[in-house]
Simulated assay, not measured.
Amino acid sequence: MTDLTARLEACYSGAVFDVLRDLGHANCVLPRSIAAIDPDTSVCGRVFTIRGRPDDTVDAHQSLLAWTELLTVVPKDHVAICQPQDDVRALMGELSAEALQSRGVRGYIVDGGSRDNAFIRKLGFPLFARFRSPRDIVAAWVPEAYGEPITIGQVRIATGDWVVADIDGVVIIPEALAETVVAKVEDVMKQENLVRKAILEGMAPKDAYLRFGKF
């Protein structure tokens, strides 16, 4: 685990967004329909991108061979983010999640579906998806690119960017801003703690805001 990952683990998506907004990068939040299958899970780390597409010409063997390659390609200590260009199928299931988890992949975020969600929740593997479906990718879907830029909603995502995902949503941090953003978020959280302490000691919220410049 890199030092930056460890520091991000202490952060939360709201503070990360606030800092990116103030830096002029408010277009950093994935669509609200992409959510954790278990609200208690969160994930952060360096991003590895995947793009794929439906394909009704591929046979079952070819599709499964390509899928198992996908599970092998995602690097350890990364969060995989997938643009499947698919509104029908589950792009993650229990066996696949277990395979990624065993290889040290930190989590998986997909602009598409997932299945075997009860099993994946028991695994504790962080999975963020847009919908649920028992329909899988066999003889119907193939990966077409690894590590290339993708777009989800209005957000462009590149391998090497960073992500913070929790119960509130998914925020992408551009690679060039990562160190700056994390340092600023740490400062924000310190200021918020001062505001919280002041309010709990009886200071009016407005006065706390005026004193610390943060709320």
Rank of each mutant, 00 (worst) to 15 (best):
G52P: 02
G52T: 04
G52K: 05
G52Q: 05
G52I: 03
G52D: 08
R53P: 02
R53V: 10
R53H: 13
P54R: 14
D55C: 07
D55V: 05
D55L: 04
D56T: 12
V58F: 04
V58C: 13
V58K: 08
D59I: 08
D59K: 10
D59S: 12
A60P: 07
A60L: 13
A60I: 11
A60E: 13
A60C: 08
A60D: 12
H61M: 13
H61F: 15
Q62P: 09
S63L: 03
L65Q: 14
W67T: 02
W67H: 10
T68R: 15
E69W: 09
L70K: 00
L70F: 08
L70S: 07
L71Q: 08
L71P: 00
T72F: 11
T72Y: 12
V73E: 09
V74K: 08
V74D: 02
V74Y: 06
P75S: 10
P75R: 06
K76C: 15
H78E: 04
H78Y: 10
V79E: 01
V79G: 06
A80G: 09
A80I: 06
A80S: 03
A80C: 11
A80W: 02
I81C: 06
I81Y: 02
C82D: 11
C82P: 00
P84T: 06
P84V: 04
Q85A: 13
Q85C: 11
D86V: 09
D86F: 03
D86K: 02
D86L: 04
D87H: 03
D87A: 13
D87Q: 09
V88C: 06
V88A: 09
V88M: 11
V88H: 06
R89W: 02
R89Q: 02
R89Y: 04
L91N: 11
M92D: 02
G93E: 10
E94K: 09
